[in-house]
Amino acid sequence: MQHIYFFGYGSLVNRTTHLHAPAYRARLNGWHRAWRAVPERALCYLTAVRDPQASIDGLIAPVPGENWAELDQREAAYDRHDATATLDHKSDAKEIVVYAIDPARHRAPGPDNPILLSYLDVVVAGYLSEYGPAGPACFFETTLGWEAPILDDRAAPQYSRTCALTDEIRTLTDTGLELMGSRIITAAD
């Protein structure tokens, strides 16, 4: 039986956040990645946005038995889009979708739409694991929306899929944020 695959470009790149296997590195063409604000949430979401000049690296994996309920719940703010023809990968996947927020529902983040640092650490850990030290650097460079403040929640992570934070992940995340000129805030700010 041929399963439909998903393309992950944020926390889904981190294999410790899901049980979907086998997973393969992939490149999505015609899209870029961006931090976006939505009306129903104060925090920023990471989404894919159509852009014919861009491409982003990530991970594809099958959804066995076409059981999408758990993944759809995890990605509740997003719609599924067919990405089969726009992906480069080395798997036998015949059908692949990408989750993205409807462009009519999102906008550029403002000062009141922070990015959770605990979430960002999970994403950086995934890119480090899949693509080596160049992976997180590429993630930062190919993602828009870094004008959003970064909410430092490392001491009490708010992200539900937080992973072990190593010195290497901390350094790669902090260096990437410094290069992007990001403003770090705390809950008291």
Rank of each mutant, 00 (worst) to 15 (best):
M1P: 13
Y9G: 02
G10P: 02
S11N: 06
S11Q: 06
R15G: 12
L19G: 13
P22K: 00
A23S: 13
W31R: 03
A34V: 03
R36C: 04
E40T: 13
R41F: 10
R41V: 07
L46Q: 05
T47A: 03
T47N: 05
A48E: 03
V49T: 06
R50A: 14
D51N: 13
D57I: 12
A61D: 02
G65C: 02
G65N: 08
E66V: 03
N67Q: 14
E70V: 13
D72W: 03
D72Y: 06
D72P: 10
E75P: 07
A77V: 02
Y78N: 05
H81S: 08
H81R: 08
D82R: 01
T86S: 15
L87D: 04
L87P: 04
D88I: 15
H89Q: 06
S91D: 08
A93E: 10
E95Q: 15
I96W: 00
I96S: 03
A100Y: 06
I101C: 07
D102V: 08
A104D: 14
H106P: 01
R107N: 10
I115P: 01
Y119S: 12
V123R: 04
V124G: 01
A125T: 12
A134D: 12
L144V: 13
L144Q: 15
G145F: 05
P149H: 05
D153S: 03
R154A: 07
Q158S: 11
S160T: 04
R161G: 11
A164H: 11
D167E: 10
E168V: 10
E168C: 01
I169K: 00
L172K: 07
T173F: 02
D174F: 08
G176P: 02
L177C: 06
L177F: 03
M180R: 15
M180Q: 15
M180Y: 05
R183D: 04
R183Q: 13
I184W: 10
T186L: 12
T186R: 12
